[in-house]
Design a protein around this nucleic acid. Structure first.
Lengths: 147, 147
DNA sequence: CTCCCGCTCACACTTTTGGGTGAAATCAAC
DNA sequence: GTTGATTTCACCCAAAAGTGTGAGCGGGAG
């Protein structure tokens, strides 16, 4: 969540830099091909970097469907949440649950009470129609709603 | 190897498209900002896609064991058990554990006492260096010792 | 504005899980 | 024949997990 926001800010800053470079381009009359190629290469590298960061960051946020991605990863996450029938918080709990964390650890990482985590887990168990957390992880992986 | 070549070809094709778009840009006199922004966004998405493809390569670890052997099937099983460091019973408990069963259910299916299942699970936790059953399932799947 | 839903938390309770110790039988190996 | 690993089980205890109820709060829909 916070990371995506960070990437958004970085992207905005880079767009600003782009404008500046563009200004210099118009003034100094550089080669158009060179300029565009540089921009393309730069943003390709940026994209690769973002991809690396998003995939290696504790598995917490996954795009999960690379083929249909046309804009930004968070839209994919939202779509995954909606078709899973789970709320945002429940999905977060489930994700950490699948990483082998205890309820207490989940509570600490999400800054919640242990009771709240229990409530979320109970609710998502009902929604996933399971009785234990191991089954929930299994089901979630089958449905592709977690990494 | 082949993937890198594929990406190179894709990149070359996209560069060609870029040239074409550039030509259209010079002819039709579109907005420079819009054009550059489009290129930047496009290559950012491309980069993210490449990053995802390049990083999510080694997920599919095969368990093998079943299809290859034609003479002595037990050798495969024994080999899997040995390189996992688990005993036969511990592996059975782990397998059922990964299927989301409770200790009581495992005890029923293996015709064991609940205490025995607990003993086996505790021992396999130590051998897998984990503290919870969810982590054990995770680790076991990483090691490819269960389905 | 009211109602519903999601998020939060508490409290009490049961079940499950995990840790520790001990111990008996078996079986293979040295 | 002793040793070590495995399998089996018991008992107790603590922690974690799960269930049920109730309740306050904030946002979005009607």
């Amino acid at each position: 969540m916070k990371t995506i926001l960070t990437y958004g800010i970085i992207l905005a800053v880079l767009t600003g830099i782009l404008k500046f470079v563009e200004y210099r381009f118009l003034v100094r009359d550089l080669s158009t091909a060179f300029y565009v190629g540089t921009v393309a290469a730069f943003f390709t590298v940026l994209g690769i970097w973002m991809g690396l960061k998003l995939t290696t960051k504790k598995e917490g946020i996954q795009t999960s469907s690379t083929a249909t991605n046309t804009t930004f990863p968070q839209l994919d996450v939202d779509a995954a949440l909606q078709n899973s029938g789970l709320s945002k918080r429940e999905h977060e709990v489930l994700t950490l649950m699948a990483q082998g964390h205890s309820n207490q650890e989940i509570a600490d990482e999400l800054c919640l009470s242990l009771n709240t985590v229990k409530t979320h887990s109970s609710n998502l168990f009902i929604k996933l129609d399971v009785k234990r957390r191991t089954q929930a992880v299994q089901r979630a992986k089958e449905m592709g709603i977690i990494a």
